[in-house]
């Protein structure tokens, strides 16, 4: 596994999430997956270009997404994933990826990121741009977040 690809994303989660009010951040699993990934709930993907090229996809289940949106909105109750909650999640993916981009630049790798694309649904089959996808799973205050990174 190429840790130089995934470490900036791991560092980004551990830096950014506490700033948003999350407390327990545990890296649960780190693995390599094939090109096809199945996810349910919310999937956010952002394009990356520069010294490395590819994309990143964040997957969070619907309940987890609601909890994240609620925490990001200062504890406001989120009963359904309305536009406001979706916008919070979208912003989170943007913050995490922008932070990862800064971490890359500390390793002298310059990358730029695109705005996120958000999809919701059950059993979404994702094909990333590369055959080997680096995947990390986090448990953040009981919420599971999966980050899939395909970068060349």
């Amino acid at each position: 596994m190429d840790v130089t690809i995934i470490n900036p994303f791991i560092a980004s989660i551990t830096d950014v999430m506490p700033q948003l009010g999350f407390e327990n951040i545990n890296l649960k699993a780190q693995k390599e997956k094939s090109k096809k990934i199945v996810a349910s709930g919310i999937v956010l993907t952002l394009g990356i270009v520069g010294d490395k090229k590819g994309n990143v996809a964040y997957a969070i289940d619907t309940e987890g997404a609601k909890q994240i949106a609620s925490t990001m909105m200062m504890g406001m109750p989120v009963d359904e994933l309305d536009d406001m909650a979706k916008s919070a999640i979208s912003e989170l993916s943007n913050m995490l990826t922008a932070n990862a981009a800064i971490n890359f630049s500390n390793d002298n790798i310059t990358v730029d990121i695109s705005p996120p694309t958000m999809l919701t649904g059950e059993s979404i089959e994702l094909s990333m741009s590369k055959d080997q996808v680096m995947c990390v799973e986090f448990d953040i205050d009981g919420i599971l977040i999966e980050i899939n990174v395909a970068l060349d």
Binding site: V43, G54, S90, T117, M118, L119, I124, E125, S127, A150
Partner: peptide
């Protein structure tokens, strides 16, 4: 302008958010 590589999604009942831009 440069384009990033594509991500493909496949499935039933997928909703795509497009109103943010």
């Amino acid at each position: 302008l440069r384009v990033s590589p594509p991500t493909v999604f496949r499935g039933k009942d997928i909703t795509i958010s497009i109103g943010d831009l």
